[in-house]
Amino acid sequence: MKKLSARRRHPLAAVVVLLLALAATGGLYAAFAPAGKAQADETAQSLAIEEGKKLYAVGCASCHGTGGQGTTDGPSLVGVGSAAVDFQVGTGRMPAQQPGAQVPKKKVIYTQAQIDQLAAYVASLGAGPITPTESQTNPEGADIGRGGELFRTNCAQCHNFTGEGGALTHGKYAPSLEGVSPKHIYEAMQTGPQNMPSFPDSTMPEKEKKDIIAYVKAVNGEETPSPGGFGLGNLGPVSEGLFAWIFGLGALIAVAVWVAAHTAKAKKS
């Protein structure tokens, strides 16, 4: 798990660490802090980092080390960025409960404000992808068709045609994208959580990410129509085959039993 930190450290990181972290957390915190803007920025920011540090010490330090340097139980968080924290904690994956092939999505135990504080603290450890703003992730007006093509090139191989998820090696899996918020999809592409590769802005710019999110929402949203009827999990021929055998052929055999059965006799002799 140490490898993670090594790979995440960008050559430029050391220089811009503080600058970016400050900008990111500041901007973010501003969105939630009711206080007046410019003057309060600096104090709010350091306050958030302070609060985040406290939360971190209680909830994260046992695995990720007291300074985020990582231990044998958890990777270093230096340079993972606020986006990674927002994704991992915001989807309930962190704090992890038990070791396994992969850390699953769970009930979120922190409030968004606490997550932002944690993110601010981790971002202060080293620069990384920044939590996207609402306008960055809002898929409105995006090109759904293009998003579909990008999805099938980059995502469907693991997450299935419509984002129902799929298997990876040795018990790992690509999770279902059903009900995942645009922000979290965006962050996952940016940061590459766990074994998922990242799709950074340099190769997958913001617009393309939006197209993909728009496509996922179009084909796997709450209101997504399934014109042909119940979708059987959208898993393709396996579920269809099972259904055809058990319910299709099953129903027809039940009918056949009725057709061939002897009609009730008037009296038993």
Binding site: R152, A156, H159, N160, F161, G228, L235, P237, A244
Partner: peptide
Amino acid sequence: TINPVWALGPYRPDQVSTGAQPDW
């Protein structure tokens, strides 16, 4: 529903989806 082809996209030899199975 069976085989919702609209959700699958047109064939391109460089694209694929997980759960790629034939009919039973």
